[in-house]
């Protein structure tokens, strides 16, 4: 172990921001998935609840992604450059998804088809675009993470077009991670929505969906782990043989079982905590498995790091930023997600 220096600290903070993006921004994408899959007698109400839940917060949640990117290009510019070259195609597709999701949501909720204030639940064209983009974007994000974990993001310049710009991410393992990401985001969203729904019937709708999504997470997670042992040796090995692996799997397993059990017994607030813990543990499991590599198999966090002065200044900015940010975020959620009396 090389010890923890400023580079590892910044990388850890970027990982915290990525986790926040998954838990908050990810759930907003998941909401779009449930908009796409809205069905049954309460279809309209489901869509209205989703729109109401993500309306005031999605732009703030989205900024976590920007923070991750900015930290990456400031503190690990070599890694940023390599990722941007090799993953040009899936990143561009992800951006198209982000653009369509965000603008379609704004178009729909501010100018619905039903009159002045726009019925947030309307399923117009933009509703469709919003929903489809919400489902596609997480898959692209997952493909990129999958390529990173698989250790196929090599320096460019060798091989033909397919090998250099497609082969690294279009793999069975990558697809697995893509689907897992989609399942996780949908799972988070449905669990959160059980808490947000005020009407019992609507709450039951999302409880059933959450249980279904939990099953999808289970299947894709194990499928991906299996593919990982074949396709992503470093991460696969880390996740199975490292000394901390059993403890991690135990914790993730406990969180997963707790999430299902609390959903089953309708303790929705606890379910929300358990689901968030489960997703965080999965992410941190991946991060630990590839530590100390930022881009396996050759680029370590340390080797990719910017000069020390940049890292130290960034830590100051991140610390200072957190002082401004955390109270603001707490205020935002306190205004729009008040605890029930």
């Amino acid at each position: 172990m090389a010890g923890i220096g400023p580079a590892e600290l910044v990388a850890g903070i970027a990982m915290v921001a990525l986790t926040a993006y998954a838990l908050l921004g990810g759930a907003d994408f998941g909401g779009g998935v449930w908009d796409l899959l809205a069905s049954g007698p309460r279809k309209r109400e489901q869509r209205a609840l989703i729109a109401e839940a993500i309306g005031p917060i999605w732009e703030a949640n989205h900024v976590w992604l920007i923070i991750v990117i900015v930290v990456l290009f400031t503190c690990f510019p070599v890694a940023f450059a390599r990722l941007a070259i090799t993953l040009h195609i899936p990143l561009s597709l992800m951006l198209i998804g982000i653009v369509l999701r965000g603008s379609a949501f704004a178009f729909r909720s501010h100018y619905g088809h039903d009159g002045e204030h726009g019925d947030a639940g309307t399923s117009g064209h933009w509703g469709r675009v919003f929903a489809i983009a919400s489902a596609g974007t997480p898959v692209m994000l997952g493909l990129c993470v999958g390529a990173l974990a698989a250790g196929t993001v090599r320096p460019p310049g060798r091989g033909g077009f397919y090998e250099s710009y497609v082969g690294s991410w279009l793999t069975p393992f990558g697809m697995g991670v893509g689907l897992l990401t989609l399942a996780l985001f949908a799972f988070l969203a449905s669990v959160y929505l059980t808490v947000e729904a005020r009407e019992p019937a609507l709450r039951e709708d999302f409880r059933r969906r959450a249980l279904g999504a939990a099953a999808a997470v289970f299947v894709t997670a194990f499928g991906t782990l299996g593919l990982g042992l074949l396709g992503a040796p470093l991460v696969g090995r880390g996740l199975t043989t490292a000394p901390w692996a059993p403890a991690l799997h135990l914790a993730t397993g406990v969180a997963a079982v707790a999430a299902i059990w609390t959903l089953w017994s309708r303790r929705f607030r606890l379910a929300r905590v358990a689901a968030a813990a489960q997703v965080s543990l999965i992410l941190w499991g991946w991060a630990l498995a590839q530590y100390p590599y930022l881009i396996p198999p050759d680029l370590t966090i340390r080797a990719a790091a910017a000069p020390r002065i940049t890292l130290v200044l960034s830590l100051w900015i991140l610390g200072f930023g957190a002082l401004v940010l955390l109270p603001s975020l707490i205020y935002l959620f306190a205004v729009f997600k008040p605890a029930p009396r």
């Binding site: 900015v70 900015i317 930023g321």
Partner: peptide, 8 residues
């Protein structure tokens, strides 16, 4: 990166 982080 500094101004971009502050911008973030």
């Amino acid at each position: 990166g500094m101004p971009f982080s502050l911008e973030g």
